[in-house]
């Protein structure tokens, strides 16, 4: 039940480049009827350090969400090693992990009748030490999370009144209230319009930089991934086939091979490489 003062002076410097999660040869399969199993991950090697922002890309069914759930500690790997912070994944209790890892799920139904402030306060459960009230630390963490997610203006609104973009900001604030050192995002830009996609990714980049949070974000939009993340890992049929700078990973050949779509690489006005799918206009 120890609560680590993440924000204590010196803690931030100490976590620079400290390994947050390290997977070696991770394999996982889901049970199917009649004793068969469906292999989803076949030997994944991946390491993430504090302050790093990694975009995880791949086709549908390539194992992205499963990998995220393994990293979150809610699924156990069949084989391979997974180190979370300074311990193997199996050495943590669920509550201990919840104090260090937050997950933004692909979809989350928010219960109606709660105000945003109350919902974000739910993110404090793993840290809660007072039976009925909120401690001053809880309140400060919630206020910081609301500010960081640009949701402080929503605090007194009801969940059912929120637009899609506002909802997503609230979900980010809930995750940040956990004061995680590892933030796992499963398609955070789903259902968002372009402006909200950009502003959400801006927020996430700022958090990983300023608060030294390690972030793994599953993204579908390759262009967005390439712009938002300094590092991209490409998952194909349960294996990481490329991991590195977006320009190295998102090559025409690799994207064509994995996604089965021809792409062209263009240069934008700032000189950055952009991938564009080749779609023939209708005659």
């Amino acid at each position: 039940m120890t609560v680590e003062p993440l924000e204590a002076a010196g803690a931030i410097e100490a976590t620079v480049a400290a390994p947050v999660a390290g997977a070696t040869g991770l394999t996982f399969s889901y049970p199917l009827p009649a004793g068969r199993r469906r292999e989803v991950l076949r030997g994944v090697d991946l390491a993430i350090a504090a302050g790093e922002l990694l975009a995880l890309i791949g086709t549908n069914g390539s194992g992205k969400t499963t990998l995220l759930r393994l990293l979150a500690g809610t699924l156990r790997a069949d084989a391979g090693g997974l180190q979370l912070f300074d311990r193997p994944a199996s050495g943590w209790s669920r509550m201990e992990l919840a104090r260090r890892i937050a997950v933004l799920p692909q979809s989350l139904e928010l219960p109606s009748g709660f105000r945003v402030g109350e919902l974000v306060t739910m993110g404090r459960l793993p840290h809660s030490r007072s039976l009925f009230g909120a401690t001053r630390e809880d309140e400060e963490a919630v206020e910081r999370a609301l500010r960081d997610a640009a949701a402080d203006d929503l605090a007194s609104r009801y969940a059912e009144e929120l637009s899609g973009g506002e909802r997503q900001r609230v979900l980010v604030a809930m995750a940040l209230a956990q004061e995680p050192r590892l933030l796992l995002l499963d398609e955070p830009t789903l259902h968002l319009d372009l402006a909200h996609q950009v502003s959400l990714l801006d927020t996430i980049r700022r958090l990983s930089r300023e608060r030294r949070i390690a972030v793994v974000a599953v993204l579908h939009d390759l262009t967005l991934a390439a712009v938002a993340a300094p590092r991209v890992a490409l998952l194909d049929a349960g294996r990481i086939v490329a991991d590195g700078h977006p320009d190295e990973v998102l090559t025409q050949q690799l994207v064509h091979r994995v996604f089965g779509v021809a792409v062209e690489a263009l240069r934008d006005s700032a000189g950055h490489r952009r991938l564009v799918p080749v779609i023939r206009p209708m005659a």
């Binding site: 809610t74 201990e96 919840a98 799920p105 989350l108 139904e109 219960p111 739910m122 993110g123 956990q178």
Partner: peptide
Amino acid sequence: LLGEAQASHLGVD
């Protein structure tokens, strides 16, 4: 009330 997945992410089995 947040659902099973989110409850477990918050440390509750």
